[in-house]
Simulated scan of single mutants.
Amino acid sequence: MIVFNPSKTGPLRFVPSFERAVGGAELNFAIGITRLDMEARWISCIGDDEFGKVIYNFARGEGVDVSHVSRTPNIPTSIYFKEIGEDGAGKSFYYRKPSPLLELTADCLDESVLDGVDLLHISGVYLAVCEHNIEVALKLVHFAKVKNIPVSFDPNLRLKLWTIEDARAAYEKLYSSVNLLLTGQDEFELLFEGRTVKGVQQQYQIDEIIIKKGEQGASVYTATEQYDRAAFSIRAIDTVGAGDAFDAAYVYGYLNGDDIPERLRLANGAGALVATIKGDNEGLPSLQELKQFIGDEKLIER
């Protein structure tokens, strides 16, 4: 989507001007991956309009493979306005119905869309936008299973886009195919209504459930172990996009063969860095920036 960032903090009705940028959970994740020196392919549909051109060129400029991004002249590109509080917490106001994604149906895809892919990542925001998107996601998951490709899923619950009941019903169709479930603590509690992480893991046979806890850090649950990692201490400016950065860095570590404690360290670091900069993806770190922040490399400035 096109993002309009406010020129000042506080309620949106008192904001006099906005700055145009590009955002969206799935694209943020893809950019996060490319900045960590891995390749990312983005599957989507945007409007064939000026805003769509901004998004397409921005994604391509970040090194994201846009060969499976279609453009439609029939529906305008989606936009949203962001509200930022004094503590950096954000609220989103969406204008995305109808969405260009209406024209990206399951019939548009075949197995070749995942050729050369090592992991399929799906966001719950995508599922919320159009009713048929769950069919698209399930078809992609089927292709992934045929090709023995692991699947990561972030519920990214957006109750401004649909009800909690609709979200639960859609997500329920995916859980048993998910290898990495990356969810916020509050999301987990809303989605699973008092059930334990272990209980959910055993029911759906999810390899790893990763619980993001913001300034309290994060935890990972496997079939036999629990891993906890404290957050990095920062002053948050804008928390929107921090979860996407966490996901990208965790998946980077997973594909890189890092152990879980190291993945958590990378993910917490990436999420923290994004929260220190205004914007959805402006703060997504390069691999060198991330390693410098978490202390693996020294920063030398001349």
Score class of each variant (00 low, 15 high):
Leu104Glu: 01
Leu104Phe: 12
Thr105Met: 07
Thr105Pro: 02
Ala106Lys: 12
Asp110Trp: 10
Asp110Tyr: 11
Glu111Arg: 14
Ser112Gln: 14
Val113Ala: 09
Asp115Cys: 07
Asp115Glu: 15
Asp118Lys: 15
Asp118Gly: 12
Leu119His: 14
Leu120Phe: 07
Ser123Pro: 03
Val125Met: 05
Val129Ala: 05
Val129Asn: 04
Cys130Gly: 06
Glu131Leu: 03
His132Val: 13
Glu135Trp: 09
Val136Arg: 00
Val136Lys: 00
Val136His: 00
Ala137Ile: 11
Leu140Asn: 04
Leu140His: 03
Val141Gln: 02
Phe143Tyr: 15
Phe143Ser: 10
Val146Met: 12
Ser152Phe: 03
Phe153Ser: 01
Phe153Gln: 06
Pro155Ile: 07
Asn156Trp: 01
Asn156Gly: 08
Leu159Ile: 11
Lys160Phe: 04
Thr163Arg: 08
Ile164Arg: 09
Ile164Leu: 15
Asp166Met: 10
Asp166His: 08
Ala170Phe: 02
Glu172Asp: 08
Leu174Lys: 00
Leu174Ile: 12
Tyr175Met: 12
Tyr175Arg: 02
Ser176Thr: 04
Val178Tyr: 02
Leu181Arg: 01
Thr183Glu: 07
Asp186Ser: 14
Asp186Arg: 13
Leu191Phe: 05
Leu191Asp: 00
Gly194Gln: 05
Arg195Gln: 15
Arg195His: 12
Arg195Cys: 05
Arg195Ala: 14
Val197Tyr: 10
Val197Ala: 07
Val197His: 02
Lys198Gln: 14
Gly199Trp: 09
